[in-house]
Simulated assay, not measured.
Amino acid sequence: MTPDSSSGPTVLALDTSGSAGSAAVFRQGHVAAARFEIRSRGHAERLMPMIAEVLEEAATSYQDITRLAVTVGPGSFTGVRVGLATARALALGLECPLLCLDSFALLAEQAREARSGDEDTDTPLAVLIDSRRGDVFLRCYAASGAPLGSPEGCSPDALLARLPRGPLRLAGDGAERALALPELAEQPYRFVETARHCDARSLAHWAARPSATDDSLAAAPLYLRAPDVSRPREASAQ
């Protein structure tokens, strides 16, 4: 079986950056197969079987793939590394482009897909990703989709001051926890349920666009804080 370039790219998209894992195959203009699992750990053991499942369901072989897509974080250090290492190896072996998108942009894409009504089209978006260390990774977007400032790590106490004033849509797995904070509970905020976790289906749609090759990030992890690792005793004693 050989790729049919006349029907557009055949994309294998992967995400293991956060508290879920997913894989999707996009071909002939639509998502042909997808898997999505809530999974805060065990990405390394599950990812390759998940890829095999979506390829089989989509009647697609590795040789049919013309683009790989993966998220680069922020999120779980281990999950980000697993996804990137797998995608890099596949792209190298298949000699096809590797397209990368950060988790903020993917969740913002999913939130835009869920928009309905005039109110949503005029409402900014804040993406909050749980860091698993008590704070969140935050990036805000204008209603137009343009980023508002750089991504940052943010403590719960500082959230209200960092968020745009007025009505706001929230996405990401850190959003519900933020909405439980007393100072945020009374704000005109709405959580976009379908943009809670990164989903490879939306990533595959993005990667199939002609503009994706220009918008792709470098194939390197996006970290907003240092990994939590213990230094060797002899090094720390110096």
Rank of each mutant, 00 (worst) to 15 (best):
T2Q: 14
D4C: 05
G8E: 01
P9I: 01
T10C: 15
A13Y: 04
D15L: 11
S19A: 14
A20G: 05
G21K: 00
V25L: 08
F26I: 02
Q28G: 08
G29P: 05
A32Q: 11
A32W: 03
A34D: 06
R35N: 08
F36C: 02
E37W: 08
S40V: 14
G42T: 06
G42A: 10
G42W: 05
A44E: 07
E45N: 11
R46L: 10
R46F: 02
R46V: 06
P49V: 00
P49K: 09
M50P: 02
A52L: 13
E53Q: 15
L55F: 04
E57L: 13
A59N: 13
A59H: 13
Y62G: 15
Y62M: 13
T66D: 05
A69Y: 10
V70K: 11
V70A: 14
V70L: 10
G79P: 09
G79S: 12
A85R: 09
T86W: 01
T86C: 15
A91C: 09
L92M: 12
L94K: 02
E95T: 07
C96K: 11
C100S: 09
D102E: 06
A105D: 15
A105H: 13
L106F: 03
L107A: 03
L107M: 10
L107D: 08
A108I: 02
A108R: 12
A111C: 03
R112E: 12
E113F: 09
E113N: 09
A114K: 07
A114Q: 09
A114Y: 07
D118L: 11
E119R: 14
E119A: 15
E119W: 08
D120A: 15
T121S: 14
P124F: 00
L125H: 04
A126F: 02
A126N: 00
V127P: 11
I129K: 01
D130R: 04
D130V: 04
S131P: 10
G134E: 03
D135K: 12
D135H: 15
V136M: 04
R139M: 12
R139D: 12
C140M: 06
A142K: 10
A142F: 08
S144P: 06
G145P: 09
A146P: 01
L148Q: 14
P151I: 07
E152F: 04
A161I: 00
P164F: 11
P167S: 09
P167Y: 10
L168E: 01
R169H: 10
L170R: 00
A171I: 06
G172C: 04
G174I: 08
E176R: 15
R177A: 13
L179A: 07
E183N: 14
A185G: 01
E186V: 13
Q187R: 14
Y189F: 13
F191W: 13
V192W: 00
T194C: 07
A195S: 06
R196K: 13
W206E: 02
A208E: 00
P210D: 12
P210C: 03
A212H: 01
T213L: 12
D214C: 13
D215P: 04
A218W: 05
L222S: 09
L224V: 12
R225H: 11
A226P: 00
V229S: 05
S230V: 14
S230L: 14
R231A: 13
R231C: 05
P232G: 08
R233G: 14
